[in-house]
């Protein structure tokens, strides 16, 4: 504890770490919201969605683990990150495949499409 509580001006190192990680996660949520509004088609918006799902969750769970370091917290934190990183790509893949197959994307903004014809 004493090493973590060390700091200057009454602000502990732990407070700084907590603040930075919360801000990283909040920034990811904000960028995802803006991306959802600005990106032009389903497949691009899918990329915007993966940011808070992965880096946002990793940052926030790491944050909880840093502010309450105990074995139970850390194992649960590892489990959350593990499940999130296992399930997020699956749903992204399912949505992406459905979007491609139903043609819900703009072909005019694709540089190349090496998948066409293989379907």
């Amino acid at each position: 504890m004493s090493a973590l509580e060390w700091g200057f001006d009454g602000i502990g190192v732990r407070d700084v770490v907590t603040g930075v990680l919360v801000l990283v996660s909040a920034l990811m949520c904000f960028a995802a919201g803006v991306g959802l509004l600005r990106f032009p088609d389903v497949l691009s918006r899918l990329h915007a969605a993966t940011k808070p799902q992965i880096l946002g969750v990793i940052a926030i769970v790491a944050d909880v683990a840093v502010s309450n370091p105990s074995l139970a917290t850390i194992t649960l934190a590892v489990a959350i990150v593990f499940f999130q990183s296992l399930t997020a790509p699956v749903s992204a893949h399912m949505v992406g495949r459905a979007a491609y197959r139903t043609g819900h994307f703009r072909t005019d903004i694709l540089v190349t499409d090496e998948f066409r014809g293989h379907d």
């Binding site: 990811m28 600005r38 915007a48 940011k51 903004i109 190349t112 998948f115």
Partner: peptide
């Protein structure tokens, strides 16, 4: 990779002058 790419995509989403241009590759 996740940290770097997340920051890059966040910048693309927030930053000015976004021009959509994607690719589907094999």
């Amino acid at each position: 990779d996740i940290v770097l790419a997340s920051l890059q995509i966040a910048w693309i989403a927030i930053g000015p002058g976004y021009k959509p241009s994607n690719a589907v590759i094999a």
